[in-house]
């Protein structure tokens, strides 16, 4: 074997039961998607924690940068008109 390659890292998402979303459970190393799936079963669902698993190679995830959180998320802060409580209605109006 010429240039040595280590098993890549995979992110594991598990749906704990139908009706709930897949949630990030952790990561693991595996040679390919199939092995990542088998390992995910053994590492993250030994006690019936899931009914469905997604595996995604970590390098395919693009993450936002926390140091740019200001530009990223602050614009939403001054838009109170996006919330129902921004609008004043008389008390007589019910169910709105």
């Amino acid at each position: 074997m010429s240039d040595k390659k280590n098993w890549p890292l995979w992110e594991i998402f598990v749906r704990s039961k139908n009706g709930l979303e897949h949630r990030h459970f952790g990561s693991l190393h595996a040679a390919d998607a199939e092995m990542a799936m088998e390992n995910a079963r053994d590492v993250y669902t030994r006690r019936n924690e899931g009914v469905s698993i997604w595996v995604v190679e970590s390098k395919h995830i693009t993450a936002s940068n926390p140091s740019e959180n200001g530009e990223m998320f602050e614009p939403a802060q001054d838009k109170v008109y996006r919330h129902p409580t921004f609008y004043d209605l008389p008390d007589e109006v019910k169910h709105m």
Partner: peptide, 8 residues
């Protein structure tokens, strides 16, 4: 480990 990687 190497064989698994080569297979993949």
């Amino acid at each position: 480990r190497d064989a698994a990687m080569a297979h993949a």
